[in-house]
């Protein structure tokens, strides 16, 4: 199986879909001549030309709305947000436009569009460039929200997103773009709405998405040394959520820790906790605990930034608590 970087997997997904479907095109800031701010669209302008790979002005509201309109007329646009922080100025077009068009037209106007780009913190980018906005989008009926953690998931899910007939918010990670992993050759898709068990275990379920998957896996490796077998579940899609895989795991382990990079109040982890208490209450041996980003705008200083983002130690601590164990030290 070939090994690809996460960004290469995304590039393959877009390029393959553009080769097979003339209706698919890419637009966004610096996606063409610059090859993408994070080089995700490298070489695509050369292959597909300026008609299908469009450099836009810094005008997220305008070009996102334009893409929604193009989708209403039968095209299948991929909008690259340089980062999802900038999607905030396009929020009206995404929520009042893309998400609601099918419903308020009584089923006449589907909007097959993918809005993709990195979300969450990177390294010392401070408050306006380090936000996890997935719970905002996942709140909205009409949108799908996909967050792949590995190169294989990135490719398989992006191809499905491009083929989907609904608006898909596809959130990547700046710090994962260079990560390498095996990606199956040839035609490879992963259905939207299916979680993945990233590590099996019987003692506790850790639910995490995007780069928090790796924090959870590190914690699980550490916990294994003390004989605790943690199961790590990556929902991969936040909406629609694969409730069954999450619940099956919790029914097996009887304990759950939810990890997310975003803010705690009304974060997606709260939704998981709600699901678990509602559907698996009788199986729980401890309250569901959440490990979240700090409830502050992201600080710049390195030690403060580290303190604001969930890490292995905090996940281990939460696992100990749901297992009613004292911490090792």
């Amino acid at each position: 199986m070939p090994t690809l970087a996460y960004r290469e997997a995304l590039n393959q997904a877009m390029s393959e879909e553009m080769r097979s479907d003339e209706r698919v095109f890419l637009l966004g800031e610096e996606v063409g001549a610059y090859n993408g701010a994070y080089k995700v669209s490298k070489g695509m302008l050369e292959e597909f030309g300026p008609k299908r790979v469009l450099d836009t002005p810094i005008s997220e509201l305008g070009f996102t709305g334009l893409a929604v309109g193009a989708a209403m007329a039968g095209l299948r646009p991929i909008v690259e947000m340089m980062t999802f922080n900038f999607s905030l100025v396009a929020l009206d077009q995404i929520i009042n436009g893309a998400a609601k068009m099918l419903y308020m037209s009584g089923g006449q106007c589907p909007v097959p569009i993918v809005i993709r780009g990195p979300g969450g913190a990177a390294h010392q980018l401070s408050a306006q460039h380090s936000q996890s906005l997935e719970s905002w989008y996942a709140n909205v009926p009409g949108l799908k929200v996909v967050m792949p953690a590995t190169p294989a998931d990135a490719k398989g899910l992006l191809k499905s997103a491009i083929r989907d007939n609904n608006p898909v918010i596809f959130i990547e990670s700046e710090v994962l773009y260079g990560m390498k992993g095996e990606v199956p050759e040839g035609e490879y898709t992963i259905p939207i709405g299916v979680a993945d068990v990233k590590r099996t275990g019987k003692d506790v379920t850790i639910i995490a998405h995007l780069k928090m998957v790796y924090v959870a896996l590190e914690a699980a490796a550490e916990l294994a040394k003390e004989g605790i077998e943690a199961e790590v579940i990556d929902p991969r899609t936040l909406r629609p959520l694969d409730e069954r895989t999450l619940l099956d795991s919790v029914r097996k382990t009887n304990r759950a820790v939810v990890v997310e990079e975003g803010w705690p109040f009304a974060g997606v982890g709260a939704q998981f906790a709600d699901l678990i208490q509602r559907e698996a209450f009788d199986f729980l041996d401890a309250p569901v605990l959440r490990v979240t980003g700090a409830d502050v705008p992201m600080p710049y200083a390195k030690p403060l930034e580290h303190a604001a983002i969930p890490d292995k130690a905090r996940v281990i601590e939460a696992v100990h608590r749901v297992l009613y164990r004292r911490q090792a030290t």
Partner: peptide
């Protein structure tokens, strides 16, 4: 912007 989009 939607109108620009159908025109596009």
């Amino acid at each position: 912007p939607l109108a620009a989009g159908t025109a596009f």
